[in-house]
Amino acid sequence: MTWLLTMGLIRRLRVTQWAMERAMLGVSLRDQIRNEEIRRRTTVTDIAQRVAKLKWQWAGHIARRTDGRWGLKVEWRPRTGKRSVGRPPTRWTEDIRRVAGSRWRQAAQDRALWNSLQKTYVQQWTSIG
């Protein structure tokens, strides 16, 4: 449904965004201008905030859907029945559960509650430096 947000993915997206913003301003790395200054000049939203906000909105949309499509019913199971060694991979809903709790689908039905939780969810990805 959506990518799992990881520290590595956020870091790579931010590096790419900073490179694009430098290119927009015609600034080189040799000019030694801080990223905060470039962000102030371009007034572009941080990619981590944008991605987290869109993911939260998409999860709420999927949870509120009542037309019976298979969006929430899909869960991958290995054909062989065997799992790989080590910690199981994190699913995209586990991000949502950390903020909204295990009953996140019911929480998504109340849009006011869901939107208030969105700020907390987005903030956790903004604070990652």
Rank of each mutant, 00 (worst) to 15 (best):
M1A: 14
M1V: 14
L5T: 05
T6A: 09
G8L: 14
L9V: 09
I10Y: 09
R12D: 14
R14D: 08
V15H: 11
W18T: 03
A19Q: 02
A19C: 01
A19R: 04
M20R: 15
E21W: 02
M24T: 11
M24Q: 09
L25Q: 00
L25G: 00
V27Y: 05
V27R: 04
S28K: 09
L29I: 10
L29A: 05
L29P: 06
R30E: 15
Q32N: 14
I33R: 05
R34L: 08
N35I: 04
E36K: 13
E37Y: 02
R41W: 03
I47W: 03
I47F: 01
Q49S: 14
K53Y: 12
L54I: 09
K55S: 12
K55Q: 15
W56L: 10
Q57A: 13
Q57F: 08
W58R: 12
A59E: 13
A59K: 01
A59L: 10
G60D: 03
G60Y: 02
I62K: 05
A63C: 06
T66F: 04
D67Q: 05
G68V: 08
R69Q: 09
G71C: 13
L72D: 05
V74F: 10
V74E: 14
W76G: 04
R77W: 06
R77C: 13
T80A: 09
T80Q: 05
K82S: 13
S84C: 11
R87E: 13
P89L: 14
T90E: 15
E94S: 14
E94Q: 15
D95E: 15
V99A: 02
W104S: 01
W104L: 02
R105T: 06
Q106P: 00
Q106E: 12
A108T: 13
R111W: 06
A112L: 06
L113T: 12
N115H: 11
Q118A: 15
Q118T: 11
Q118V: 03
T120M: 07
V122K: 02
W125M: 10
I128M: 15
